[in-house]
Every structure is written in structure tokens, then in C-alpha cells.
Design a protein around this nucleic acid. Structure first.
Lengths: 350, 350
DNA sequence: TCGTGAGACTAGATCGTGTTAGTAGCTCGA
DNA sequence: TCGAGCTACTAACACGATCTAGTCTCACGA
């Protein structure tokens, strides 16, 4: 049997396996006395092996400490069942998103290959790395790449973008309905009796323009177009603090909606130091419902993005396009939810 | 030439490459008119190819959009140059550690394969997955696995543990010198004039017992053995808040050292609500120097672990053991650094 | 007795690369 | 003229799995 000769050592002492080499299917085959192909059949759960043989093969595998080789499997079968996820480790929002992708992928029988963008590794670099590992699909969280580059990537692999508003080409897109989030914030405040509601703007950051537009439209819809006021800022503590100092120069509004939690926290700090009581003198709403918002000392009313929903959609979208190659790409914006905590209340005069 | 016939289509129209198949070295070889082996030589930068041929091969590769296949490469060469990293996505400390591992690995020519532990994927599961991808080394951050299991893993692959205090077996270990951190905190407070310094304990959590021991020894060394007081708590906001409420029942110390930042923040909140001024009435020190500590509204004095140092050591340790198989495993504890912010000051009476 | 079909199993090609052993062609010195 | 030693290159096997196209055995019906 040529098959069996391959497994090293037909000479004396052939029985023992080399301790420095990891066992392969050939080792199991030899141990059980069947062909390598049959071992493969058993491991893939295909029919064509007797119950008795299945049992013996599994036993031998356990005894030898066999572990299937993903590289060989992927190479031969052209199906790695692997999805690449490109994200930024420094953004807690993205990390949380990734965390929720795991169970979704697992349920559909796919693995996740994480590609972290860091200061030393740009998105371009990470995409390249992921594709070398033969990901079948790619999920790009918060893409920085320009449209042309993304088109080129979509040409090579199924692509899903998370968090980008406008896209063309054969790409699924899932994002938060940012405008709806600030609208919810406005409506919450209006219901409490507020009218003088100011928006702390997020500048050029992702989602910021939609958040601003949502604020403006909601204000207008409630007959408060005359009260619209937007203070330019950004997504950092410092941006929020600077905006807070600017607010203190003039007459205070009764409520502010910040573009995100960080900015809200920076603003909160400035206000508290200036003796402005929150929520009695000023209501504050953040955006993201981050871990910071939940801290006992902060307890910030904030807009929560549907992270599990986005993760789930992203995974299902790639897998669907893998299974049904001609499926049309979908673009979806999931509704966020306002989480009311301690920084909002009825205005003083109400 | 048998070699060239393998590249599909020797019949009419053979020139065009199939758009649905990714180009391989064989395609480049055919395009340039050399053997596949030579293409491999050029890509690996080995000698044995003329400058002219090198140039033509690189040109063809660029033109065809060739991308080396990591699976095939790893399979054949038995060198994946990949290090598996097992960590918990929900722990910002570990995420930050991983972030710093990237440049260290890159510099040594290794890739990182991230294996995230989540509620649905235990450490055992993740280790298995990483080994299937033929990682050459494994870095386990905050291992939960018992010693026997880790020994078994160390038998299959080079292993480095991050953050575990005691281990045996052929394993490198890098951790923070937790005891030194609390000692630094004690010395900072003593220098400010404090004597009644209480420790908010971390319970059974990783590092907590060392932090407690460091506190106790440092107090004793400064002749304050009689002032030692330990309040049982944990690593969460709630633990810290509960400890704070207990403290309020008796006479307050002038300073507390919490086992981590979260607990410190929970405690801070309780104190501020109770009208205790920080740092005038009570100094508070945290541990970890997390993002929370840096928030403007919190501004917590805290002990910073040397995250870049730990990441660097972990990567270098695995790679060294890969290059020099007989190198003795090292165990190291890196010194932390106290970051003084706004929650510590001289005690009231001083 | 023979053909047929199903069940259990195997041989050999194959995925894309790395690697070893070799060959063709050239120059050079004896 | 020969062999040695170089450079530039090629053929063929290997890695560990999957997959196609079989083979062998046995039972069954005609």
C-alpha cells in the first residue's frame, strides 16, 4: 500500500509517531488502517463511511491529538469560511461591534479574521493582509478609504461597509440612523418643556453631519426653527469643553445635544466647574451611550446605537451574498434608541 | 512544457486570464515566460535570478494584481510567521495591549492573529482555533485556563502569558509589578503627609492580591503598620461604591488606594454625593490609568501599567524562543508608574 | 448465472506555494 | 580538450487537506 508508506518509517520501530510533528489525517488513517480519503469524509460529516469506522476514526483522532489544518483545508477547498473584519482597536464603539459579530458569524458557520487598523497599519495594508488569508468576505468598519479603492476591493471580495452614509457599487452598507438619533433627543427635550436647545456639532467626523441635520429638521418640525443654534466642536473632550466655554459667554440655552459622549463629558465638566447645575440649569444629551455615559458620576442621557443589530446585519449580508452571488446589495440605517439618565430634566422655569 | 500547460487553456484564446480566478505565481510565470520556481525565488528575495528577470516578474505581478497566498505559503513552508494573541475584547486594558503588540511583531517580521474571547467563545475554543491556523507562538493575555491545560498548550506551541503571577513549565511570563504600584501610591501619599491610608481591595481578581500585599508592606515599611486597613471590594463601579458607603459609616481615612480605576470611580461618586470633598477631605488613588482616569471630570491619580513595555516583551519573548529553541523561559514584572492628577493632595490638617 | 445498485472504501489529481536537486550555458585556467 | 565553478534557470516533489472518479463486495431480482 503506497498510501501507508507515505507515513514515515516502514522500517523497524515504525509504530511510534514523531513527537515533533503534528499528526495529520494520514497518521489517523494509518492508525486505523483506512485511507486518508475516508478520514477526510468522516471529518467533514459526509456520508460514505460506516458507523463503526466513524467511531474508530474519532477515537484515533482524540488519541493522537489531531487538529484539522485550516490552511490546507482552505487551500484545497477554496472555501475558507472566513470573514475579514477591518476595524480600529482604539475605538471602543468598533470593538464592541466586532464583539457582537462573533456569535452571528459562528451561527452561520463562519470564522472571523480580525484586521486591526493601528497607527502603524493603514486600512490599505490591513485589507491586503486579510485578502492574503483568502477571506471570502470583508467587513469594513468606519471606512476611510476613498470610493475608488473600495470599488476595487468589492471587485475582489464581497464587501460590507459599516457606518458610511453614501456608497455606490456592489456593496452592502449598514449604518446608524444618525439623524433619527438627534431627532429623538430633540423630542425628548421638547416633551420635557425645553425650547432653547443648542447642538454641539461634531465637525467633519463620521455621522456628525447627519446628526446636525436631524437636529435642525426636528427643531423645525416642532416650530422651533428660530431657536436653532449650532456650536462648532468635534468628538473629543477638549472640543466639548471649548464649546462649553463659548456657551458660557452668552445666555445659556436650557438644553444641549452633543454630537457624541466625549464632547458631552468635556462640556459637562466645564459647566459643573462654572457652577451650572445639571440637569436643573442645563440638560445635556450625549450620543453613543458609551461606557462613559454609564459611569455613576456622569450618568449621561445618551443616544444608543443598535450595535448588536448592526453587527448582525453586517454578517448576514456578507454571508447572503456569498450564498446567492446575484443578490442585490442592501443599504440600511438602523434606528437608535434614546437612553434617559440623570442629565436631562424639565427646564427651570417649567 | 508540462509546467506551462498547467495554466489553463492552451487552446484558442489562451491568452486571457479567467477573471473569476485570482492570479497565481503560475500566471505570472506564464506571462513572463519563465518557470514558476523562478517566480517564487524572486518573491522570496533569494538569489538566483537576474535583475532583468526580477524587474519583469514584479511588473507582471503588478499588472495582473497578484497577491501572495498566505495559506499555501504557510502550508508548504511550515513557517507561517504568525503569532496568535488570545485576549478579551471587552477589557480595554487587553485591547490596548494588543494594539501595542502590532508594531513589535511587525518589526520582527511576524503577523498577529487575533483570537478574541467572548461570552460565546471560551479560551479553550479560541486556542484551538488559533492552533488550527498554525500559529507558531501564542500570547495569552489574562489566562483563565488552569495550569495543566496551559502546560499542554505550551507543549504544542511557544507560549507567553501576560498578567499571570505564578507559573511553571516552559513558558515566558510578563506581568505588571502590582505590588510596586501600590507601594508607589503609598509613598506618594505619605510624602504628601498622609498616615490614615485605606486600601479598597480587589477581591479575587487578577493582580489584586499583589496590590494588597504591596500596600501592606509599604505601610509597614513607613512605620504605619498600625494604620493598615483593608476594605473588601472588587473591580467594578458597584464594588467601589459599596466600599465607599462602608467607609462613610466610620471615621474617614485621609486617603484611599483603590484596587483599580473602576472601583475608585464608584467610590468617588459616593463620596461626592455625601459631600466629601476630593482631594481636600479625602485623597483617592486608582490603578490602571484607564481612559476613565483621564476624563476631565474625574482626573484621577492612578498607577499606570507599562502597557507598551509588556506588549514588547511578550512579542520579543515568543520570537526569541522561536529562533533559539533552547532559550530558557523568562519571567518578568515590569515597574508601573504613578500618574499624579487632581484627586490627591496634602491632608486637611497638614 | 448474470446484471444491477447501493454501501464502503481507495487512488490519484489538485489547491498555490516552497524547496531540493539538478541542467544548460558560459568563462576560466591547466 | 577538459573539468571546475559560476550564474540563471527548471523539473518534480512536498505540504495537508478536498474531491472526482472510480473499485470492491454483497445482496437481490430475473
Amino acid at each position: 500500500m503506497v498510501e501507508q508508506d507515505r507515513a514515515r518509517g516502514t522500517g523497524p520501530g515504525a509504530r511510534e509517531r514523531r513527537p515533533d510533528r503534528k499528526p495529520t489525517m494520514a497518521d489517523i488513517a494509518q492508525h486505523v488502517g483506512v485511507s486518508r480519503a475516508l478520514v477526510s469524509i468522516v471529518f467533514r460529516g459526509k456520508e460514505g463511511a460506516s458507523e463503526e469506522t466513524r467511531r474508530r476514526i474519532f477515537e484515533a483522532a482524540a488519541e493522537l491529538g489531531y487538529r484539522p489544518d485550516s490552511l490546507a483545508r482552505g487551500l484545497r477547498s477554496n472555501r475558507t469560511r472566513t470573514l475579514g473584519v477591518l476595524f480600529d482597536l482604539r475605538r471602543p464603539f468598533e470593538v464592541e461591534l466586532v464583539e457582537h459579530m462573533y456569535p452571528a458569524a459562528e451561527q452561520l458557520g463562519y470564522h472571523l479574521l480580525l484586521g486591526a487598523v493601528t497607527p502603524t497599519r493603514g486600512q490599505e495594508h490591513v485589507v491586503d493582509e486579510l485578502l492574503r488569508y483568502r477571506c471570502e468576505g470583508l467587513i469594513v468598519v468606519g471606512p476611510d478609504l476613498d470610493g475608488h479603492r473600495l470599488d476595487a476591493i468589492a471587485d475582489e471580495v464581497r464587501l460590507v461597509e459599516v457606518g458610511r452614509a453614501v456608497t455606490r457599487g456592489p456593496v452592502d452598507v449598514v449604518r446608524n440612523d444618525d439623524a433619527l438619533g438627534t431627532r429623538q433627543a430633540v423630542e425628548h427635550l421638547v416633551a420635557l418643556g425645553h425650547r432653547r436647545i443648542t447642538h454641539i456639532d461634531g465637525g467633519p467626523n463620521p455621522g456628525a453631519s447627519d446628526r446636525r441635520a436631524g437636529y435642525q429638521r426636528a427643531m423645525t418640525d416642532h416650530g422651533l426653527a428660530g431657536e436653532i443654534r449650532v456650536v462648532p466642536a468635534g468628538y473629543t473632550d477638549e472640543d466639548g469643553a471649548a464649546a462649553g466655554r463659548r456657551l458660557l459667554d452668552g445666555p445659556l440655552p436650557t438644553a444641549v445635544i452633543a454630537a457624541n459622549d466625549q464632547a458631552a463629558i468635556g462640556l459637562l465638566d466645564v459647566m459643573l466647574r462654572a457652577g451650572v447645575r445639571v440637569p436643573q440649569d442645563l440638560s445635556v444629551v450625549g450620543y453613543d451611550d458609551s461606557r462613559f455615559a454609564k459611569l455613576p458620576g456622569i450618568d449621561l442621557t445618551s443616544v444608543r446605537q443598535d450595535i448588536p443589530g448592526m453587527a448582525d446585519f453586517a454578517i448576514k449580508a456578507v454571508v447572503e451574498r456569498l450564498d446567492l452571488p446575484e443578490r442585490e446589495p442592501k443599504q440600511i440605517a438602523l434606528p437608535p434608541q434614546l437612553v434617559v439618565r440623570g442629565t436631562t430634566a424639565a427646564p427651570h422655569g417649567a
